[in-house]
Design a protein around this nucleic acid. Structure first.
Lengths: 162, 162
DNA sequence: CTACGGGTTCGAGCGCGCTCGAACGCAAAC
DNA sequence: GTTTGCGTTCGAGCGCGCTCGAACCCGTAG
């Protein structure tokens, strides 16, 4: 099916980078979550600070219950949501949009089309951004080549001599 | 030579997107700059505000001379530098680093190795970032597929039902 | 008993990169 | 001669996403 193809394509693009493999596992292996987690555990898992997790909660992005001591208890649903949220943040989706998205998600299935629209827009944003960065990468490599290789002295002026 | 290969690769990746073609031209066709430009012209060319150009000047990133009226006159060297600077900014290099880089550039050829180091580090940062975004793109496409296609209802739980 | 480690709430502060407003200058158009 | 338009300087303000400090609570180890 199409989704397998997508993941396969992603894996192709990512190669064997261990960090990426770990990250892909977070996509493909969501069942491996502990029954419940402390804030420190979640922070470690997602590579964010406990401060940030509390901030996300304050921002209304996720609800977290407390134990008898008043300490946060992250259930698997909360953790999965935070996995999603941190990925979206990492890829540049603004807090505002995430707050909107989460409000929609909490409003029920009727909002699926609008959520889909948001995801599609984000997908397009990501594609544009990747193109931009790819272009900048090419320009940077070009500059490194003219600088380091000294292979094309007549091309050095391509962007002046900074 | 190697630099041609890099640009060729970039063009392959970019396809026929008009915006990208325009951008590539900014890399490959630096000779087409007017003798001197006003702040409004440069702002338009680089798609930034005049405010931002003045800000960059204040930040020490570029020196710009004035005409008899005190208005800024951007000569080709300044424009080329700003092309470079805006591309670096667009690709996420912090102002701090650009200030350092420019200080090195202004200090003469002895600083070429350090500038090269900075470019190489930036290149690596870009590669990592592109990988991250590619991963997020795959995850987003995956989610769109499970949402929109309804093709894999048993996979919907991959990231809960946000 | 006390110290320590990890949690809590609250509000304030920060670093970044602009972005804007106020007050002004000059020149060409009406 | 005044209005319009584009420019100038200066310093303040803003939006974003955290990040931090203070004061406090609790359970366990030494």
């Amino acid at each position: 099916m199409a989704t397998d193809e997508l993941l396969h394509r992603a894996l192709e693009l990512l190669g064997d980078d261990p960090l990426s493999v770990e990250a892909i596992q977070r996509v493909t292996d969501p069942g491996a979550l502990a029954e419940s987690m402390t804030i420190a555990e979640v922070a470690e898992l997602l590579d964010v600070s406990a401060h940030t997790l509390r901030y996300y909660e304050r921002a209304g992005l996720v609800e977290v219950s407390r134990d008898a001591l008043g300490h946060r208890v992250y259930d698997p649903a909360a953790v999965r949501r935070l996995v999603f949220l941190t990925r979206m943040r990492l890829s540049g989706m603004p807090m505002r949009d995430l707050q909107h998205y989460i409000a929609l998600a909490d409003a029920g299935d009727d909002t699926v089309p609008e959520r889909l629209d948001m995801l599609i827009e984000h997908r397009d944003t990501l594609r544009r951004r990747i193109r931009e960065l790819t272009l900048s990468l090419a320009a940077t490599e070009f500059k490194i080549a003219t600088y380091g290789g000294r292979a094309a002295p007549d091309a050095v002026d391509a962007e002046s001599s900074e």
